[in-house]
Design a protein around this nucleic acid. Structure first.
Lengths: 187, 187
DNA sequence: GTGTCATCTTGTCAATGGCAAGATAGGATT
DNA sequence: AATCCTATCTTGCCATTGACAAGATGACAC
């Protein structure tokens, strides 16, 4: 975070633009995001966003960093329970869809941004902590493999859910459906 | 497929544009795809693509359909072995990256296109067949859940691999790395 | 009161997607 | 063979967008 800047002409344009971006992304996806549309939503001129974020990649970088921060918080709050962490991961993807969709599309933002890297580090650590509780099925050396498996299944389910690729019979409750699927790994 | 059209002015523009699109997507991603760029690559005027595909969504729809067809073929060739099918799925995502990235981004194409739906059906059937060999861990009613789990873990690993989100230590061989992770489910 | 700087606006340009109208050429019909 | 027909492709155009440059505005320090 660059910190909560004081209110200037607009009030808090940076925050307003990020909020507008989340709305817009939920409506049309991250690819079709238009800076000029964000400016209109915020009631400022078409060039105002450039000042705060440089360009579109800069804005998406800020969103991705915010997303990784939120994910780290979410996973930390979920605690050491692997199943709970997995469900929390899927739930995050669905409820913070805009964030999630940007986070895992690095071609849209600047992957070398310091704030982004810091947030990614936090999320990575939280992920690892949540997976640490996984009962290793074999030798301790398999821990890495197990962690990847857990991350993969949660991420895959979340991605397929967001893409609308899952059959109808999985229902409309992501937490419930995720729990059923994730149990396949822990059980 | 609308069929292999005869060679007119260009020769086989439709096919050439699809091939150019695959190249371009591998370079800049599906979002940044430019129809005019494709036209330049194929050596035709900027409006030529519109005739064959209508608009950008039309072109991506064709690519997605082609992708689901190829995936169905790949999974069918992999046979009934669950582990093999999972590895084939990940391998497909990496080697046919452009196709894969379009296929699971339905906001970019027309999800109600008949050819696309047909290809999706084939892929879905092939997926189900590959998963049928999974040793069900509980009651037979868990088959659906197990199928979703298998699909999720393969899809998640593939997606994370493509996003470059996986730690370096997983190596650079997707088939090998996928096999290790997927074994966690079967074993 | 003045200067300074972040903030925001206005104006502009190249690139893009999409549309309309026209040109071209292969194949069918007579 | 002459003509029509239709798919194919081109040229021209317009609105939108991202990015940049230069200027206006207002908060704050001194």
């Amino acid at each position: 975070m660059t910190g909560t800047r004081a209110a200037y002409h607009h009030g808090d344009l940076r925050r307003a633009l990020l909020a507008a971006a989340l709305e817009a992304i939920e409506e049309v996806g991250p690819a079709a995001l238009s800076l000029r549309d964000l400016a209109r939503r915020a009631g400022v001129s078409h060039a105002a966003p450039a000042h705060h974020f440089g360009d579109k990649a800069g804005l998406l970088t800020a969103l991705a960093a915010q997303g990784f921060d939120l994910l780290a918080q979410t996973l930390t709050a979920a605690g050491d329970d692997l199943l709970g962490a997995g469900v929390a991961y899927v739930d995050f993807a669905v409820r913070r869809r805009a964030h999630f969709e940007v986070m895992f599309r690095p071609e849209l933002y600047r992957a070398d941004d310091p704030e982004l890297l810091a947030a990614q580090g936090k999320a990575r650590a939280a992920l690892r902590a949540g997976v640490a509780a996984l009962p290793t099925r074999g030798a301790p050396a398999d821990a890495d493999r197990d962690a990847l498996a857990a991350w993969s299944i949660a991420h895959g389910f979340a991605t397929l859910w967001l893409a609308g690729a899952l059959p109808d019979r999985v229902g409309d409750n992501p937490r419930e459906a995720a729990r059923a699927v994730l149990r396949r790994l822990s059980g």
